[in-house]
Amino acid sequence: MGGESATRTAPHSGGTSRGPAGGRLGQRLSGLAVALGLVLFLGGFGWGAVAYLPYTVPTSSMTPTIDPGDRVLAQRVDGAEVRRGDVVVFKDATWGDAPLIKRVVAVGGDRVACCRDGKLTVNDKAIEEPYLSSEDKRAVDMNFSVTVPGGRLFLLGDERHGSLDSTAHLTDAARGTVAREDVSARVDAVVWPMNGMLPRPTGFEALGGLSSPGPLRTITAMIVAGAVLVLGGGAYGPVAKRLGSRSRTEPAGAR
């Protein structure tokens, strides 16, 4: 009709209203991501606290594998699980009051000797030890031969010329060996500085299976994945809200 107003409110583009912060489905997925992330993150830390012990190495007896002041993570293990080549944490009253870190080079029943052409031998087999420094690979001044009693371990430092290890206790009744039950943990990695997992001692593989790697990589993956999910899920709401506000304030195009 002639008196009818010619002005009407233009409908919003699309004819529908968006839900807050990107919609209910987005919010639910965001909350699920945060919840799952917290489970992974806290579960990883909890698992790590139960499975591992931290140690700071005060001496150079394990260089160049572990330097003085390095922070390591050692998996809690039973002494019966220890195998040749493992770097272990142990405490023996005849060696002192503090926990010590050395490498197991022979187990009960083995005959360990040094040196043949500068190399350690176990059961007459020369052992390749790539973790030794070039100087220690020429350890021709070391001279010993020990048959390890059952249930005991023979341990050496990777710094062969300066380590107070089994060679410093050869005159003891146990011929420098340590009981398996004195071992409390096996070193998996140097975490500060971030040198990572210790190399596999493949030189001992021909004498028997090596220890399986601990769960440290799995634990680390859980913590990282959890952190990503928490941060990503937590950021979704503010980002979606900002994008939604921007789209509502944009001028409508000519129709």
Rank of each mutant, 00 (worst) to 15 (best):
G2P: 15
S5I: 07
A6K: 13
T7Y: 13
R8E: 11
A10G: 13
P11Y: 02
P11F: 03
H12D: 10
G14P: 06
R18M: 08
P20I: 04
G23T: 06
G26P: 06
R28K: 07
S30R: 02
V39T: 11
L40R: 01
G43F: 06
G48H: 02
S61E: 10
S61P: 05
I66Y: 10
D67C: 02
P68I: 08
G69L: 12
L73Q: 13
R76N: 12
G79W: 08
A80Q: 09
D86S: 09
K91V: 14
A98I: 11
A98R: 15
R103Y: 08
R111N: 00
G118D: 04
G118R: 00
V122P: 01
D124N: 06
K125R: 15
K125Q: 12
P130N: 11
P130V: 01
P130T: 10
S133W: 01
A139G: 04
D141G: 02
V146S: 04
G151I: 05
L155I: 12
E159Q: 14
S163F: 06
D165Y: 02
H169G: 05
L170I: 08
T171G: 13
D172I: 00
A173L: 07
A173V: 10
A173M: 05
A174K: 06
A174I: 03
R175I: 01
G176Q: 04
G176K: 00
T177L: 01
V178S: 05
A179P: 05
D182P: 07
V191S: 10
M197I: 13
M197N: 11
G208E: 07
S211A: 15
S211C: 07
P213M: 08
G214M: 09
A221C: 08
M222I: 03
A227C: 14
L231S: 13
G232I: 07
G234Q: 03
G237Y: 10
S245C: 02
S247A: 15
S247K: 15
T249N: 09
E250T: 15
